[in-house]
Design a protein around this nucleic acid. Structure first.
Lengths: 150, 150
DNA sequence: GCCTTCGTGCAATAATATTGCGCCAATGAG
DNA sequence: CTCATTGGCGCAATATTATTGCACGAAGGC
């Protein structure tokens, strides 16, 4: 893991569609060396996968909502159960167990508020062990990076 | 935008490294047709970009923190100023203006708590117009998808 | 019913990835 | 200090994959 590997990773996190020769040129390596490095980074698992990122605005799921959830019962078992429930939802794109005043944090991708309503029914009411939840709708996006700076 | 386009987008959001012939086969098209569709999806902007996703655990920035921020002054101007400040930070990977009890939401990628401390100094103290902030450290990740289900 | 438009598959071609090989620098043992 | 070993490099050949030209057929407008 030297300077060149880091440089490659930074570049690939911004654009993984570039040709190998192009990348090689930018980092100052031959195409073959460059490719071998990238392959090693893949095999080692540092590069988990490469994916297409959609422009959410041109999608039906335009709305982004952030939800904090406080559980009624806090045992490991109950936490796991709620997370499983959340993960199974198509609208849920991130689900974390967190420290602090709340227990779980969710990011939602929503078509409209009706979908949100239906989701609330499934996740936050009845027998789902939720004491309280608080929703923030995203008004403006300042930044939305998938990259991890090395 | 028909069923095949959606199928392609769903596949590419999971793995954009597959060969065109492979994709074509899975959706039931010829390679040429498949490629032309994908190119159109790119040009139309629905596909914004394709990127490498790293395994954060194998990275130096292992810690993920979520921060809600309440501003002192709420004018559009002040909001913009704070967001700009946040966006400029390498550790900030998401920055949103939101509705609800707080004004701004941030996702951080941190090396350690020292980096967090330094970031707090820059973003939350002194003259940055922050009334209050609340940090949640991510304990467990249930889901962390970049995909938007179509 | 005919014409236009659009998307398709096939096959040829162009671009790109991948591999074999010989070379050099760094490292460690004797 | 020297020599063998290891690992990574570039070059050039080869294999894979993307891309394009073309002819065909279905759907919709007139």
């Amino acid at each position: 893991m030297d300077r060149l590997d880091r440089k490659l990773l930074n570049l690939l996190q911004r654009n993984a569609a570039r040709t190998n020769a192009d990348l090689a040129d930018e980092v100052g390596l031959s195409p073959s060396s460059c490719l071998r490095r990238i392959r090693k980074l893949r095999r080692s698992g540092i590069i988990d996968r490469t994916v297409a990122i959609l422009n959410a605005a041109k999608t039906e799921r335009r709305l982004k909502a952030l939800v904090t959830v406080e559980l009624e019962l806090h045992g490991e078992h109950h936490m796991r159960r709620f997370l499983d429930l959340a993960v199974a939802e198509e609208a849920v794109s991130q689900a974390y167990a967190v420290t602090g005043e709340v227990d779980v944090f969710l990011t939602l991708r929503l078509r409209d508020m009706e979908e949100f309503d239906a989701l609330c029914d499934r996740l936050f009411r009845d027998q789902t062990n939720v004491a309280r939840f608080n929703t923030m709708m995203v008004i403006r996006t300042g930044k939305d990076d998938t990259a991890i700076r090395l």
